[in-house]
């Protein structure tokens, strides 16, 4: 018989938003699952959704349905996960770079970071370099997360890094780029401090970069 976390994972894979929210309520009521366990099942669910997309079983609407299931669950779990934090984990500015309107992955990362105790300023999609840099300046952000679905967004990433340098902010903020097509080589080319391709690695890289800052 499956446990609550396994059922929670399946509800997300199936895109059952009401089910994932109900199971999140059960997780809170039971009070046994640790944040690490919850995120492990969340990552596993999204990896399975991604795999189904790769094999042609799922398409964009099915991925969005699962993303909605994550969002509904996270709205329930945020308080539970926050209660287990010792204060703010850091300030994050995040958005999808100019020329790119993908927001599914970004929204999931935003939810996960908030749940992990970060103060997140979500700038949305198709965000200009100036908007990113202005927000970093305004908030005194520790981390700047740049979501970019494909490597064709390289000029936009380079522009942001260049503007951070011009404004004298590059040494004050750690920059992380994320997207399914990202690699260490791509991160090196655009001059960011780290990269991540999924929820789990984003949280890990953020923790590492915060330790360095």
């Amino acid at each position: 018989m499956k446990g609550t976390l396994e059922k929670f994972e399946l509800a997300i894979i199936d895109g059952n938003a009401d089910g994932s929210a109900d199971l999140a309520d059960v997780i809170v009521a039971e009070g046994r699952a640790t944040p690490a366990e919850i995120f492990a099942h969340l990552s596993s669910a999204m990896e399975e959704v991604g795999a189904k997309y790769e094999t042609g079983e799922y398409f964009i609407p099915e991925m969005l349905r699962s993303a909605e299931a994550v969002e509904k669950a996270m709205s329930v779990l945020e308080t539970y996960l926050f209660e287990r934090k010792d204060g703010q984990a850091g300030i994050v500015v995040m958005g999808t770079v100019k020329g790119d309107i993908h927001n599914i992955g970004k929204n999931i990362i935003v939810s996960a970071l908030r749940a992990a105790g970060y103060e997140v300023h979500d700038l949305g999609v198709n965000v200009s370099a100036k908007k990113f840099v202005d927000k970093v300046k305004e908030t005194g952000a520790d981390l700047l997360l740049l979501s970019a679905f494909t490597t064709s967004t390289k000029p936009a990433l380079l522009e942001i890094i260049a503007l951070l340098k011009t404004e004298g902010l590059r040494d004050r903020v750690k920059v992380l780029s994320g997207g399914a097509s990202h690699s260490q080589a791509f991160a090196d080319e655009v001059g960011v401090d780290g990269f991540a391709a999924d929820v789990k690695s984003t949280l890990e890289v953020c923790r590492r970069l915060m330790g360095e800052s």
Partner: peptide
């Protein structure tokens, strides 16, 4: 909006 539109397919 593409995301809302395609979410509406099921919603």
């Amino acid at each position: 909006g593409l995301v809302e539109f395609m979410t509406d397919f099921y919603r």
